[in-house]
Amino acid sequence: SNGETSPTVSMAELDHLAHVVSKSHLETCQYLREELQQMNCQNFLQDEVESYQKKPREVMWQLCALKITEAIQYVVEFAKRINGFMDLCQNDQIVLLKAGSLEVVFIRMCRVFDSHNNTIYFDRKFAGPDVFKALGCDDLITSVFDFAKNMSSLHLTEEELALFSAFVLLSADRSWLQDKLQVEKLQQKTQLALQHVLQKNQREDGVLNKLRCKVSALRSLCSQHTEKLSAFRAIYPDIVRTHFPPLYKELFGA
């Protein structure tokens, strides 16, 4: 209807797509917001923060690699349940997951981010940026927390988050895709569903643009992560080789 070359999709189809993607997101989101509230999770106490800070750099890296890998496994399961994803050839499924799974983990982080005290759910409690000091990459940690803060300030519903996650995962501009056109079709449909849901929820017009801007922020976070990993690996090649999760190494070329 806006004159662009978008696929013709009925409102009923968009509602159905939004419903399926939202259901898949909730089934695979690792933590439900209500569960975290019920668990009455606390912030780390000062001595606990100090014990994380005193951990050897490689031990903290290993712990974070493990947590990221766990979160990514849920994202893979989410991807598998997105309409049309499993119809793509396996090369393209892998290309999209290699490029997009960490981005979706970063998006999902805003669900477990407490904006009142700038903390994030990690290792069974809420942690501020200082908990991650031993990693030796304060700039990346600051960027991740800033991103979570900005995302959570948009107050997206689970349905909106689900569709935005699917939209990011189905990015048709990733290198090495065999059937770009097919991915583009899926991404366009997802964007229409997201637009439809935002309108239905009477969100102001700027939200979709704000979300589009987040795409480049996500790419920047992922490239920062890759740089930090390369720097870490240069110093501790054996730790990465023998102690990091195989899926993490497969995804990030470690």
Binding site: T28, E70, Q73, Y74, V76, E77, Q90, I94, P246, L251
Partner: peptide
């Protein structure tokens, strides 16, 4: 395929190793 063995497995399994 060898390079992405685990991703292949996760994509092919009807359920992932994570306890959903």
């Amino acid at each position: 395929k060898e390079k992405h063995k685990i991703l292949h497995q996760l994509l092919q399994n009807s359920t992932s190793p994570v306890d959903l």
